[in-house]
């Protein structure tokens, strides 16, 4: 739903961001052939051609590195106050300026970035694992389990995302781990439904029937056949969940329900700066731009991954 939380399940929102579709004759029908390359090599090649995704990957790695090394790179601590330098604009001594307590924006941006990126990654991975496992079980075994999963997800997906998160955040504290847990416990649901859907449809396909006929056990079917075929969709959705998690965490923190000070996150830095934005615009520009850049790169990356991995998408660039 609106408000930056965008309740559309991650895969659903950006699936329309497909950048191309088929032209009438396919490679096969025109007598062209890829010479015996594995799926993985083909996927890697396709991904490499998506320059924007590659560039985004580079930027993200750089960001991750910078924030991970915040302790080394940052000129000041994130709570370090310099009361003689309050509300300075960007300058030599403080690269990106200071806030009311004289804290260095650049350092806070780095430490805050660490929190925001950790949250994004942590949520995506845990929600990804949880959602995949539960969705796979529901889709594969069906029956009671599937029913329960569907009803539970129905319940939580009927309540606006932010509402659920705000209510949940009352129960927990405001630490990074708390927020990761809260977000993960909610964001696994859209992914679970997607995986469930995939398993449900894959289950009916003939190659699964064939596998059963030669006596493959359930485990084997799941791990050798169903999972690899869903992997592309899963990876894409997990990537997009990173974007959603970062945006949601910053929104929550901005509203005061997320990461609590003094731990900086880009979200609560924005909240801090909001009141002073008319006289100290830099307190608002930089954290917001940081979020925008990160999420944009993640979305480009997700798009590139989708082009490379999602078999349901057809693409020929004319």
């Amino acid at each position: 739903m609106p408000d930056g939380t965008i309740d559309h399940p991650p895969g659903q929102v950006l699936s329309p961001v497909a950048t191309s579709t088929q032209a009438p004759p396919t490679f096969e029908s025109l007598g062209l052939e890829e010479h015996g390359l594995s799926q993985r090599t083909l996927a890697w090649r396709r991904f490499r051609r998506h320059r924007l995704a590659m560039a985004s990957l580079a930027v993200l790695l750089l960001l991750a590195l910078a924030t991970a090394l915040a302790g080394v790179i940052a000129p000041y601590g994130f709570s370090e106050q310099h009361l003689e330098d309050t509300l300075q604009g960007p300058g030599a001594k403080h690269l990106l300026g200071t806030d009311t307590l004289g804290r260095d924006e650049f350092s806070r941006l780095l430490y805050g970035g660490r929190v925001s990126l950790l949250v994004g990654l942590g949520v995506a991975v845990s929600a990804g694992v949880l959602g995949t496992l539960i969705g796979a079980a529901a889709g594969f075994y069906g029956g009671r389990l599937d029913n329960i999963v569907m009803r539970v997800t129905d319940l939580f997906l009927s309540i606006p995302l932010l509402v659920v998160l705000i209510i949940a955040s009352r129960v927990t504290g405001g630490g990074t781990l708390d927020i990761v847990i809260v977000l993960a416990l909610v964001l696994w649901m859209p992914l679970a439904r997607i995986v469930r859907g995939m398993f449900l449809s894959l289950k009916e396909k003939e190659f699964i029937e064939a596998a059963r006929m030669i006596g493959a056990s359930n485990w084997r079917i799941i791990f050798r056949h169903l999972v690899p075929n869903s992997l592309g969709v899963i990876v894409v959705n997990v990537t997009l969940t990173v974007a959603l998690a970062i945006l949601t965490e910053s929104l929550l923190s901005f509203l005061g329900f997320g990461i609590q000070p003094p731990t900086p996150s880009w979200g609560n830095m924005l909240e801090d700066g909001r009141g002073l934005m008319t006289i100290a615009g830099w307190l608002v520009w930089f954290p917001g731009a940081a979020i925008l850049l990160t999420v944009l790169c993640v979305n480009f990356l997700g798009d590139g991954l989708r082009d490379a991995l999602d078999p349901t998408q057809r693409r020929v660039r004319a």
Binding site: P2, G4, A243, L247, L251, P287, G288, I291
Partner: peptide
């Protein structure tokens, strides 16, 4: 569309 989807709405 990409930018609009990536921009924090409150920002």
């Amino acid at each position: 569309a990409f930018v609009a989807l990536s921009i924090p709405v409150f920002w």
